[in-house]
Amino acid sequence: MFLLTTWKCINRTLGKGALLLTAILISACSDGSRDEKVTTDAVTVDNGAQVQLNGSGASFPFPIYAKWFRDFSRSETGVQVNYQPKGSSAGIQDFIAGVVDFAASDAAMTESEIAEVTQGVVLLPVTAGEVVLAYNLEGVDELKLPRDVYPEIFLGKIDHWQDPRIIAANPNVVLPDSAITVVTRADASGTSYVFSGHLSAINDNFQSAVGQSTTPNWPGGANFVSAPKNDGIAAEVRQTPGAIGYVTYGVAKLTDLPVARLENKVGNFVSPGPAAGGAALANAQFPAGTLPGNNAPNLIAWVPDPTGNNAYPIVSFTWLLVYVDQDNDKAAAMRRLVDYVLSDEAQAEANALGYIPLPQNVREKVREAAQFIK
């Protein structure tokens, strides 16, 4: 009930203007009894803590991180967690530079990036989510997009809503006689990395022309526009009739944007959601061995094109990046934070906010890896 009320309050607060997916709105819609310092792009809770954990990075998991970090800071005596959702690539660079205590990334880290972290790094998948295609088509409550169509939209090859292939997949839908406006990320992004990786896996033309990247070289043209962060894309889609853009399911859910049903590998059109995302994650296989430079287990796994009748096709873990060697007090606080976000209570909240609760076996792997934080 609290989360439903929160979403309604957020939607009332947003109206038709900019989308502020932030802790300030969640706090404003709850009890309002705490003394909080928050901005529109960060979560900060002032509890007079002796230990502060400052992080930055992915906007993909920000709605759930905002709640987790706020609640942990309120309940944990002497520890305060601050987080700025500036994008996965920016978070990785902050982490390498040592200007944060932890970071978050949907793109994990490359071996070369890991090698730059002299203190050593542990990568911990603490939640997972789906990348969805949100759209703005008046009167269209359900839209199906085949797997040979939506990559072509993001290649600029299909640029009109009455393209015969879209009409064929939606015979009972009145599609507008208008151009498609494609909204992409303006900043380096783990969401872009996951989305472009999926498109590359299912479409050879996309692989050769664009490929997988945190900063894909989109075709451009008059029908392509860009916006920063997930909430920026959501705002652009909402205010642009005929637009389509990629955001996380959690952001689409919180902002009440319709999303397309996508054709998966076995030919079924699937809507995103916890069950469909969980079916996709069932395909994940963690590699054997350890991360380069230390003995922490390698928990980097990708599912670019999941199998399964009910699997949603675009799904990914998202990772916390934590130093192996650090201040003892901060290391202990970080281990407690990891325990908290892996708890049954915290993982149950992921479902309500549009994320995928981690299976118990994955949580155990993460708990074991967190012991390398010293």
Rank of each mutant, 00 (worst) to 15 (best):
G57I: 01
I158M: 09
A179F: 10
L175G: 05
S89C: 05
G48M: 01
P304S: 05
F224G: 10
A243K: 11
F2C: 00
I202E: 09
T215E: 15
V341H: 07
L133G: 12
D71Y: 07
I314S: 07
T13D: 12
Q360G: 00
A128S: 14
A350M: 02
I92W: 02
I64R: 05
Y193A: 03
S75K: 15
Q347D: 14
G220T: 06
G87V: 05
G221V: 05
N295P: 09
N351G: 08
L145I: 09
P241L: 03
F206Q: 02
L299G: 00
P63G: 08
V99G: 04
A188R: 01
E263W: 10
Y150L: 07
D46P: 07
G57W: 02
V251N: 05
V174P: 00
V366H: 06
S316W: 05
L199N: 15
T40E: 05
D163C: 10
V251I: 14
N268G: 15
L175M: 04
P171R: 04
Q80V: 00
L4C: 01
A227C: 03
Q84E: 15
K16W: 08
E364S: 12
Q84H: 14
G55L: 05
R147Y: 09
N294R: 03
A104R: 04
L175T: 04
V173I: 14
S196E: 15
A282W: 00
A115C: 13
V43S: 06
G250P: 15
A280L: 13
D339R: 07
V210C: 12
G289C: 10
R70S: 14
V324A: 13
T77R: 07
L254C: 02
L137C: 02
A279P: 03
T214L: 04
N264G: 10
L299Q: 02
P241H: 06
N268C: 08
S343C: 03
D35C: 14
A296Y: 01
E138S: 08
A188Q: 04
V43G: 01
A66G: 08
T127L: 10
V43Y: 01
I96H: 13
L19P: 06
E349D: 11
D344I: 00
L291G: 07
T22Y: 03
D35S: 15
W7V: 12
K67F: 11
D163K: 10
A186Q: 12
E116S: 15
V315D: 02
P359S: 01
A168S: 15
I244K: 06
A227I: 03
K265S: 06
G250Q: 14
V126Q: 02
F206N: 01
K229G: 04
N82Q: 06
P228A: 11
T184C: 14
G242L: 13
L175F: 05
E111G: 09
A276E: 09
V225G: 08
A97Y: 04
L145P: 09
P151I: 01
L358M: 13
I356K: 03
D305I: 02
K229R: 11
A311I: 05
F286G: 01
Y323E: 08
V126C: 02
I300K: 07
L321N: 04
P146S: 13
G57V: 07
A115F: 09
A169D: 07
A128Y: 05
T77D: 08
A108Q: 10
M1D: 10
P228W: 10
A332F: 04
I24V: 09
G91M: 13
